[in-house]
Simulated assay, not measured.
Amino acid sequence: MLEWVDVLLVGLLTSPREAGIYAVVTRCARASEVIHQAVRIAVGPQIAAAMATRARRQARGDLQPDDGGDDLAGLAVLPRPDRVR
């Protein structure tokens, strides 16, 4: 019940339609946070190992900005396809 309190409050302050939209958007945002966290867990140890061995250029080189425009998951960096082992 506590998970839906925000939706109920939005419904009380606005309309049921807007509360429904708010509910869908916030649940999608939570799903994208899970994906973002999974990527960080998968890539984090590789970056930490490169940083620990002072291979900062390798750490930077293994990552590239995601400029594909499909940044729904809020991912700032993704492994470069040619560097994935």
Rank of each mutant, 00 (worst) to 15 (best):
I35L: 07
C28D: 00
V24W: 01
D6N: 10
L13Q: 05
A55W: 02
R27D: 08
D66S: 09
V7Q: 02
A42R: 11
A42L: 14
T53L: 11
R56A: 11
D71V: 13
I41H: 11
D62T: 07
L78F: 03
D67K: 15
L2C: 06
V25S: 01
G68Q: 05
R56L: 13
R85D: 04
T14F: 14
P79V: 12
Q58W: 14
I41W: 10
L13Y: 07
V10F: 00
R83Q: 11
V25K: 03
R27H: 10
T14I: 08
Q58V: 14
T53Q: 14
R57G: 12
Q37C: 07
V7P: 00
D6M: 13
V5I: 13
D82F: 09
V7A: 13
M1S: 08
V24K: 00
I47K: 07
A48N: 05
A42S: 05
R30G: 12
I21D: 00
I47Q: 06
V7E: 02
G69P: 05
A50D: 11
L75F: 03
E3G: 06
L78I: 12
T14A: 10
V25N: 01
R27N: 09
P65G: 05
R30A: 14
C28N: 05
A73E: 08
D82N: 05
V10C: 03
R30N: 04
V34S: 03
R85C: 04
Q64L: 10
G74N: 07
E33W: 11
E3Q: 08
T26V: 10
P65H: 14
A42I: 03
D70A: 15
A31V: 06
I41K: 14
V5E: 03
V24M: 01
G69T: 10
W4R: 11
M51H: 09
D82L: 09
R83L: 15
A38G: 13
I35W: 00
P45M: 11
Q46M: 15
L12D: 01
S32T: 10
V34M: 06
I35H: 03
M51R: 12
A52I: 14
D67N: 14
Q58G: 05
A59S: 10
V34R: 13
P16R: 10
A19S: 09
A73I: 08
V5W: 01
R60Q: 09
R60N: 03
Q64H: 05
V7L: 04
E33M: 15
G68A: 08
D62I: 11
W4Y: 09
A29I: 10
L72T: 06
V24N: 00
V77K: 01
V25I: 13
L2K: 10
L78D: 00
R56I: 15
D82S: 07
V7T: 11
L72E: 03
A19C: 10
T53V: 09
D82Q: 10
V39Y: 01
T26P: 00
P45K: 06
D67A: 15
T26H: 01
V5M: 07
R80M: 03
